[in-house]
Design a protein around this nucleic acid. Structure first.
Length: 377
RNA sequence: GGGAGCGUUCCCGAGUGGCCAAAGGGGGCAGACUGUAAAUCUGUUGUCGACGACUUCGGUGGUUCGAAUCCACCCGCUCCCA
């Protein structure tokens, strides 16, 4: 269930709910735990302390390890991770892009050579739906092909047409599985995915066709995969007007704080990105003055918290100098503390975006922070 | 006392006459990272007035057109036998 409660231009302030957790306030950033854990030794319990509203995991990775049947036997992903909030599972469509050297695509689906041991894994729309059903997530993503940018028009056209055909198959299989008596999460929703690369006509076509298939929300995929940022914004500008007004729009895999601010402005409701966690593991931390690299020598004797005024578990107790030391000494606590800070930052960013929308001052917020958060301090 | 080695740029360590400012690793410094094959990857790491010049391979002095590489002595260290 989703409803828009306030608007400012194309930006939307909304509320969403699904089978787990209470009301999700949107715009929302989903915290990525690909294999059922947030990389950097952060658990689902920690997510509660980091103001996370939705957790995201991955179909391909959990199918390989520990196996979706194992997850189902353990009571589902929620039970396994001990996370009682909403979970969105990505379909494996991104792996068609990220593991492009290890797969072959046909109309039926995609055959992967497992990145772990090379064995053949076939995944098509039906398989992806079955796996996500076994995982028991609250939102299943349609199985799509995420195409790199730039790509030839002809290829993108046939690919996004196939992705729409796959969406139809996903929808049918999803409805069938949800109706089965032993279904782990009969309330599981399905989001379709818009593709079309950097081609406006394909994007619009893909959106229109996907909208004809009744989904609970729509992902915008295939962005931030090689194209210029301005191209991504242009695609959002031309595509989102064709997305159903009463359904959430999810910009998949995006992005930087600035990307998020700009995309909310253009009408996006859901986001997810590995950036806060990955960058944290590599020492790049976000602050309201811009980002910093905690490993830099200048923080050697810096007794201040990462971000003055930040209320995250890390900043409440530890100094930049200590964190720098932990990174230099390769203590795993470094990653944990850094990841917690960055996830808190992203979740707080969304909180402030929502507050600005509530107060009708989002344009001011955008002007104040969109550029600033891209700076390095 | 006798014998055998070793000393290289921040560290370890290759290099035994020119292609050597000197491999490789570590450490240092910096950068990248966007639905996670990422605790990963990349650049850089003698000095300078820098498409060139200068100083450097324990020290000093030689041999040579040319030396980290060969010779002599000195200093320091290691191992073996007594």
């Amino acid at each position: 269930m989703f409803k828009v409660i306030k608007r400012e231009g194309r930006a939307r302030r909304g509320q969403f709910s699904c089978a787990h957790g209470g009301v999700v306030e949107t715009p929302v950033f989903m915290n990525v735990g690909t294999q059922g854990a947030i990389k950097g030794a952060v658990s689902a319990h920690d997510l509660k302390d980091l103001k996370c509203q939705i957790e995201l995991s991955n179909t391909y990775h959990l199918h390989l390890r520990p196996g979706d049947s194992v997850v189902k036997a353990l009571g589902g992903l929620h039970r396994m991770m001990d996370w009682d909030g909403p979970i969105l599972t990505d379909s494996g469509g991104f792996q068609v892009f990220s593991l492009s050297g290890l797969r072959k695509i046909t109309e039926e689906g995609v055959t992967f050579a497992s990145h772990i041991d090379g064995r053949r894994i076939f995944m098509g729309p039906e398989e992806s739906m079955q796996i996500q059903s076994n995982l028991g997530s609250d939102i299943a993503m349609a199985f799509d092909e995420c195409v790199e940018n730039p790509a030839p028009y002809g290829y993108v056209k046939q690919s996004c047409e196939r992705t729409v055909r796959w969406l139809q198959r996903c929808k049918e299989e999803h409805d069938r599985l949800n109706a089965l008596p032993d279904c782990l999460n009969p309330g599981q929703m399905l989001f379709g995915i818009n593709q079309g690369g950097t081609y406006e006509d394909l994007r619009v076509w893909s959106m229109q066709e996907s909208a004809k298939i009744d989904c609970d929300g729509y992902g915008i995929g295939g962005l931030a995969v090689g194209e210029e940022t301005e191209v991504m914004y242009r695609i959002l500008d031309v595509t989102l007007p064709y997305a159903p007004e009463d359904k959430p729009r999810y910009l998949m895999g995006v992005g930087t704080p600035s990307n998020i601010i700009e995309s909310v402005w253009r009408g996006v409701d859901f986001f997810d990105c590995v950036m806060p966690a990955r960058n944290a593991r590599h020492g790049k931390l976000f602050t309201w003055q811009g980002s910093l690299n905690i490993k830099n020598e200048k923080y050697k004797l810096d007794g201040r918290p990462i971000d003055e005024g930040c209320g995250c578990p890390t900043c409440r107790s530890f100094s930049r100098a200590y964190l720098r030391h932990l990174f230099k000494a390769e203590e795993m606590l470094a990653m944990r503390l850094a990841v917690m800070h960055n996830l808190w930052f992203y979740n707080t960013l969304m909180e402030r975006i929502r507050a600005a929308l509530d107060e009708g001052v989002y344009e001011d917020f955008r002007n104040a922070y969109s550029r600033k958060l891209e700076e390095k301090i």
